[in-house]
């Protein structure tokens, strides 16, 4: 399984991660080596094997639909990098994200 810089750039975009040129080179190299090793899984016959997402047997966990105590607004905002009028404040959202 080989990975090139185009794939690394695509994945970095998906992960919202800006990489330096040095990191792009390094990750291209290291991820290729790791995926080559991980290809070992191909040896396993998993044809009729169910995937495991969780090891505990668990039915749906439900509770009564009643409101309880929750985090006060001031506490939730206490460590916000920027806030305004009781809200988290962020830079403009609309039409700023370049299309993939």
């Amino acid at each position: 399984m080989s990975i090139d810089r185009t794939i690394v750039d695509h994945v970095a975009r998906l992960a919202r991660l800006e990489l330096s040129d040095e990191e792009r080179d390094r990750f291209t190299r290291q991820l290729s080596a790791l995926l080559e090793y991980f290809a070992k899984l191909g040896e396993l016959d998993t044809e009729d094997v169910e995937p495991t997402s969780h090891v505990i047997e668990m039915a749906n966990v439900v509770r009564e639909d009643r409101s309880g105590p929750c985090l006060p607004r001031e506490a939730a905002l206490a460590d916000a990098p920027e806030q305004d009028g009781g809200f988290f404040k962020v830079p403009p959202v609309i039409e700023t994200e370049p299309q993939p």
């Binding site: 919202r16 460590d79 916000a80 920027e82 403009p92 959202v93 700023t96």
Partner: peptide, 18 residues
């Protein structure tokens, strides 16, 4: 960078994330 922890200075949301 929205609710807690570090936020890098930027003029748009996408580059704030990245």
């Amino acid at each position: 960078g929205v609710r807690y922890g570090l936020r890098a200075a930027s003029t748009d949301l996408y580059s704030m994330y990245t």
